[in-house]
């Protein structure tokens, strides 16, 4: 399927008896910036490693650029850029040598991109990789990843440990890369402000299970928050409402976060007997935290399986 650069079906990985990624159906549309979200240990890195063919799935399959991830051709690999978690570099090389080494591994190499990114991070070719700070190492990794002009960029927590200036440079580079219509970026992150800025699609992974996969706009639009107030005390039990993802009690108030609110749900909220009901805006961070809280069944923002090809 040409519309998706990544498509997984039932992708699963166990380590011993522990299931780290469970039955993942993920589809990454071509040309988007895809934010891959989830708490630590939710299976993001394991998924990414399977996509790249670095780790065998226990079950299921992943197709990347139209090929099975377990047997990616050299051509497909040269079209993928991968930045591993923690910005690993070859310590003993100088920056210039890192570039030459990387260039030899790829079919195409755009030296002017390599230099421009290095310059952006103020890195000279003579510096030794081992002496770089975390942010500088990230800059080097980014230069090495972008110079081959990959069609698909996979960045595993690229902002980890970066200062605000370096982070902004990273985001600028991501926006610049997708100037080409066919370029796709999948990146994992915990920084929801960054995600809000640059991502147009997101997937949310929780303990190895996909909980949401939709456009960022859909995620923001479909999670709503209500504040209900009672003259006396609110009912002791958490109300049963379709789509309820989080309930928080504060004195005479009850705050409800609900996915996929429609008129029926609004009516149900209205009939809880509160003296006032207010629908209040909710930011991405709160929406995300409530959605991943410990309550309730939450597969509410997954695409309709009937609707996906």
């Amino acid at each position: 399927m040409d519309d998706f650069v990544i498509q997984t079906k039932g992708l699963s990985r166990c380590f011993g008896s522990r299931t780290v990624v469970s039955d993942l159906d993920l589809a990454v549309p071509r040309g988007c910036i895809f934010g891959f979200l989830g708490r630590n240990g939710s299976g993001k890195t394991t998924t990414i490693r399977m996509l790249l063919g670095l780790l065998e799935p226990t079950r299921g399959e992943a197709r990347v650029l139209g090929e099975d991830s377990r047997a990616l051709s050299e051509t497909a690999r040269s079209r993928i850029g991968y930045m591993a978690e923690g910005h690993p570099v070859y310590d003993w090389m100088r920056i210039g040598e890192c570039g030459r080494f990387q260039a030899a591994c790829f079919r195409s190499w755009n030296e002017s991109i390599f230099r421009a990114v290095l310059e952006h991070f103020r890195l000279g070719p003579e510096r030794r990789a081992r002496e770089l700070s975390r942010g500088e190492r990230a800059g080097l990794c980014l230069a090495l990843t972008l110079a081959p002009e990959p069609e698909l960029l996979i960045l595993d927590d690229p902002a980890l440990g970066l200062d605000p200036v370096a982070r902004r440079s990273l985001l600028e580079a991501m926006i610049a890369v997708t100037r080409g219509k066919d370029r796709t970026i999948l990146f994992s992150s915990h920084l929801l402000g960054d995600v809000e800025r640059v991502a147009d699609w997101i997937a949310v992974l929780d303990r190895g299970v996909l909980r949401a996969s939709c456009t960022l706009a859909t995620f923001q639009r479909r999670i709503s928050r209500f504040v209900l107030a009672w003259d006396g005390s609110p009912p002791p039990d958490t109300p049963t409402l379709p789509g309820l993802v989080h309930a928080f009690r504060d004195g005479r108030e009850l705050q409800l976060t609900i996915a996929n609110v429609d008129d029926r749900v609004r009516a149900a909220v209205g009939s809880l007997g509160a003296s006032s009901v207010q629908e209040v805006p909710i930011g991405l961070e709160d929406a995300f935290i409530d959605y991943l809280g410990d309550r309730g069944e939450k597969n509410l923002l997954l695409p309709d399986p009937e609707a996906t090809p």
Binding site: L192, R197, P281
Partner: peptide, 9 residues
């Protein structure tokens, strides 16, 4: 533009 706001970008 401010991120983290209740108003989408």
């Amino acid at each position: 533009i401010s991120t983290g706001s209740t108003t989408p970008i």
